[in-house]
Design a protein around this nucleic acid. Sequence first.
DNA 1: TGCTTGAGGTAACTCGGGTTACTAACCCGT
DNA 2: ACGGGTTAGTAACCCGAGTTACCTCAAGCA
Lengths: 344, 344
Amino acid sequence: MTVRQPRPTLRDVAEAAGVSKTTAVFVLNDRPGFSIPDETRNRVQSAAKQLGYRRNGLAAALSRGRTGSIGIVVSMLSAPLNPQLGEDYLLGIILGATRAASGAGLRLTTIAYTTDNPPTADEVTDNRVDGLILVGILHEEVARTIYATGFPCITIGSGYAERRVTADNVGGAVQAVEHLLALGHTRIAYASPLMTEADRERRQGWRETMERHGLSADGLDQDWEPLLQRLLNGTADRPTAIFCRNDGYAAFLIRSARQNGIRVPEDLSVVGFDSGVIAEAMDLTSVRNPLPEQTKCAVDMLNRLIAGEDVPPITVLPTELDIRHSTAPPSHAPRARIDTQKEP
Amino acid sequence: MTVRQPRPTLRDVAEAAGVSKTTAVFVLNDRPGFSIPDETRNRVQSAAKQLGYRRNGLAAALSRGRTGSIGIVVSMLSAPLNPQLGEDYLLGIILGATRAASGAGLRLTTIAYTTDNPPTADEVTDNRVDGLILVGILHEEVARTIYATGFPCITIGSGYAERRVTADNVGGAVQAVEHLLALGHTRIAYASPLMTEADRERRQGWRETMERHGLSADGLDQDWEPLLQRLLNGTADRPTAIFCRNDGYAAFLIRSARQNGIRVPEDLSVVGFDSGVIAEAMDLTSVRNPLPEQTKCAVDMLNRLIAGEDVPPITVLPTELDIRHSTAPPSHAPRARIDTQKEP
DNA sequence: TGCTTGAGGTAACTCGGGTTACTAACCCGT
DNA sequence: ACGGGTTAGTAACCCGAGTTACCTCAAGCA
């Protein structure tokens, strides 16, 4: 086994090239405004190449006082993947942030952690990155202490935040419900097993839209189980459409409905929220969570924060509805088994 | 707007406490084997607290020669999320690696990049992390140069690698096909639009199993379009089951089949690969890609590499089959519309 | 008294780059 | 022969922690 050689440093390169460290730095960083004859330049460069010199990013960042990368702190449940919890949302966020950062000439490092082992504020604000984007169900306490350090950071979505970029949850819910209303539905339920900030806002948009159209939302804001019972009993007040907190939950509902002989969309229309990989895979009508826009916006603002500028405390970005095939006009004989397959 | 104060350093704390830097380090790092009276200890600690001292991780890591974190380099397509490409796999990897790292007392930083803006070897081996896990469709050239630097790294899955941890793709395919055979299927197709290493191995497992059972695989190794045509034509050689390269592609097939009036699983059984969020959401029978095991194994090995030990060049981990509801015995009247709903 | 021992503490150095301020040598024009 | 400007280059310091080697002083003991 080869002994791991200590990695060559700038000093080694300089010595090998017979110049001072300073000169080596100037050459290797291609620093403008200094006259260095080609001969010297070549000597340094070939010494670097020959020794296999690679700069130590840690030392460089320490010296410059900037790392050139930003972090995104995402929390994941310790439990196995469970689509009801919106993991596909995280994926969209990570992709979006990666793109946005790369567009801004920054590297993104994702600091993922599981909720049973959250990072401390000290750990994430320890200057390995220039600023932070906080996402999702970060423990309130953690978010609070991170903000308290004054480290440049911005939150995407809900949770404790002093600065926030978020999707228009209320508006998205309105779009979902308006779509179902336009198809002719009147008994539209909202289904969510949780009560996060996002849930509250989506529920609010749903309720307001129902009421604006003179429809009652009462009894339609329930967990899936009682709704399913009503669907199976065929009672008159059963919903004909359900707007779900997110795509994963919508997928769960559809699965459960189909296992009980309820067809989607023939017997029941379902709308999700996020419109990520799951919605795509399930062909699910869903409110598109504008993740590319949110992440881009967050990265831009973070950049401004790092530069010492001020940014608005809250930015709300509009959603759109991606209509796929989990929604259709309500059937008037909902439990009849009619052999019509939906054509695209 | 408050001017951003320069962050207090160890020197500031030491001065405020009236001790030397050395003493401050000893106190703050709780270094054993040094006798420091409580009075002094308290002075340092309260000075640190009062100044809001937080250690600069960059400087600490530089000094120690270890960062205490490892990186995982994942590539994402520049295109929007597309479940056919296995993004849910990445999510599983990131989650798994996060857990494994946290179990090993390491922090994980994810270096995500889009394929149109790949990182250079210099960038990722610049000592901001102690070692690297490489995942997925990293450009061969990039992987090669990273390995060439001698930086501790290990690959999960396919792609150029000097050290690799991977799922048993062949074995997984065997499990999938055996399951379908046991249900009574004989015309089992393999569907994949790609030809990566993983595809090759899965295809190989499928073909070998078919042949071992005296069945011909000929004409069943095709893209979805021709298979769909045969299904619609109802020709005698149409497949009754399809094993797909991954869950996203399986989801696409199911969607497409259903839009064409082909029921799953009544008319067609479908098996995926990965068994991630999409499989869960779609209730899809799928070969479980052992991501937690793979990531844990990769992290362990990386740790050993960092410590200077040797590790085996390749480790293959076994898969299992997660049987859900996209597979059923073949129907003998495949296009008849029989109204039986499957109970879980 | 002289010697050891341990408590309490620090100066000076390291990690690997980046920067500032300065110098020596040379060329040019007068 | 002198000032001024340019070229080529460097010593010495910085970033913020962590370490090594050493010092001083008081107590304990023969």
